[in-house]
Amino acid sequence: MSAYAPDERSKAKRYAKNVTYDKDEIQSILAAQPLLHVAFNAAPSDPSTPQFPTILPMLGALGTHASDPEPHIYLHGSSVARLSRLTSNTGPTGLPVCVSSTILDGYVLALSPYNHSCNYRSAVIFGHATFVTDADEALWAMELLTNQVTPSRWANSRTPPTRAEMTATAILKVRIETASAKRRARGPESDRKDAKDAETVARVWTGVVPVYQVLGEPVEAPDNAVKEVPGYVQQWTESESRKAREIALEGATG
């Protein structure tokens, strides 16, 4: 098993049975959806004001470029955004960031509110973000990010991007230093005292309400000129919906 070495940033201190440092598990959570949350610190313009961390939702994808054998998280942003400017000014060291992804798989209803929970998959990654300046790597990352949103979309859209589009886009890549994942996939766990209380057991329904994202029927744009939804889009929507449902139901009965 290949795993990230935990340190003071990523080592879990609670609910250790839900935690893993396995790279495959962490990478599967990152690959499950394109929207990631990226946290970083930016010095306030007024030094007398408190410094608050900033968290941004960003499109991201995990990939391994030919220039480096290690996988990196590639992030898509605007070249004039604050995070892009901060990253470009840090040089080869990069900007310290924390990247997270969470997927809700179910609401867990126990006998008492204290023991209510959620089934979920989450990953937290610590690393340094750098600005991608190599044109070939930036174009490769654009393809990676596009296909993370919808598989095969790069080959089925107007490509490559124009010079103006690439200039307006910032591609950041995060070198992963340490990471951990948490996953809960089981039914409710009530206190023994509650479980032995016949009146409570007879009155309170317990179980799991599965949660999963269903991709709906594609809706064409007003100016769409293609008569039928492409097969790759239809197959993707059906496959993703089925996969999410299976994971949520498996956790509910696990």
Rank of each mutant, 00 (worst) to 15 (best):
P71A: 08
P71R: 14
H72I: 05
H72T: 01
H72W: 09
H72N: 06
I73Y: 00
Y74V: 07
L75W: 01
H76E: 05
H76M: 10
S78Q: 10
S78Y: 05
S79H: 07
V80I: 15
V80F: 10
A81Q: 08
A81N: 09
A81K: 07
L83N: 02
S84D: 04
S84N: 01
S84H: 03
R85V: 15
L86F: 03
T87S: 10
S88I: 02
S88H: 01
S88K: 10
N89I: 11
N89W: 00
T90C: 15
T90I: 08
G91D: 06
P92G: 09
P92Q: 05
T93H: 00
T93K: 00
G94T: 10
G94F: 07
L95P: 01
L95A: 05
P96G: 01
V97C: 01
C98M: 14
S100H: 08
S100K: 06
S100N: 13
S101T: 15
T102V: 14
T102F: 10
I103T: 13
I103R: 04
D105Y: 02
Y107A: 10
L109Y: 12
L111Y: 09
L111S: 04
L111V: 14
L111G: 00
L111Q: 07
S112E: 13
S112G: 05
P113M: 12
P113Y: 08
Y114E: 12
